[in-house]
């Protein structure tokens, strides 16, 4: 165990432990979307979990830092908060904010982070950029909502962990990056492997992957 100071508070953690995890374990919340406990190499793609570490001249993503003895970390500086707010505002600028009709309502990670950072869900400064089509319904069992997705990749990670080989992957590039179920697997096959699993549905922080008709039911309810 080593000692480090986070926001002026001394905590203990195993040497080499993921800094983000160490903070979360000690009830210091750092906004994050793409990190999962136990990941060897976190993707560091959501760009939320920034912290300042003494000795580093720039903010760093805490999910890519390993705990060292005597480390001095700050999670709540104005610079950090501004970066996190910008990242969130960017994500919300491509997000179809329609919480009332979304199964993630009230348990949504974006809502949680927005509340934490005191950011309105409908940022006024950035233009709203939505993609077509609204729903990708090629999967026999699941629907994918590109305008909800934050591209954290957790669904791919859990699918791969469970099956060894994922049934979904990132496709296309840049602004048009998407999650794709592309495959020639017969519907029955997917049905059986996916029906008893649904790990991707459960892990999704924003309900971008849902069981077919799930959201309709909520809307009706």
């Amino acid at each position: 165990m080593v000692k480090l100071i986070i926001d002026n508070k001394e905590i203990e953690a195993e040497e080499g432990k993921n800094l983000l995890q160490a903070c979360l374990d000690n009830n210091i919340y750092i906004p994050n979307l793409c990190y999962l406990h136990g990941m060897d190499n976190p993707p560091a793609s959501c760009r939320m979990c920034f912290v300042e570490i003494e000795g580093e001249h720039k903010p760093v993503t805490s999910c890519t830092v390993r705990v060292k003895d005597g480390m001095v970390v700050k999670t709540d500086t104005p610079d950090i908060r501004q970066l996190q707010r910008t990242a969130l505002q960017l994500l919300l600028s491509v997000h179809d904010v329609d919480c009332a009709h979304c199964p993630a309502n009230k348990k949504c990670e974006l809502q949680r982070i927005a509340k934490f950072l005191k950011v309105g869900l409908k940022p006024k400064r950035l233009e709203l950029l939505l993609k077509e089509p609204e729903i990708d319904d090629e999967h026999p069992l699941l629907d994918y909502y590109p305008n909800r997705c934050v591209l954290c990749g957790k669904c791919i990670h859990v699918c791969k962990t469970k099956l060894g080989q994922p049934l979904l992957a990132f496709a296309r590039r840049g602004f048009y990056t998407t999650i794709s179920f592309y495959g020639e697997k017969p519907a029955s096959d997917l049905n059986s492997s996916c029906k008893n699993c649904l790990a991707c549905v459960e892990i999704c922080p924003v309900s971008a992957i849902t069981l077919k008709n799930d959201s309709d039911q909520i809307a009706e309810a």
Partner: peptide, 13 residues
Amino acid sequence: GIPTCEVYGVATF
């Protein structure tokens, strides 16, 4: 011996 979606993901990149 890899999933079709992975090949598609790489090709579309």
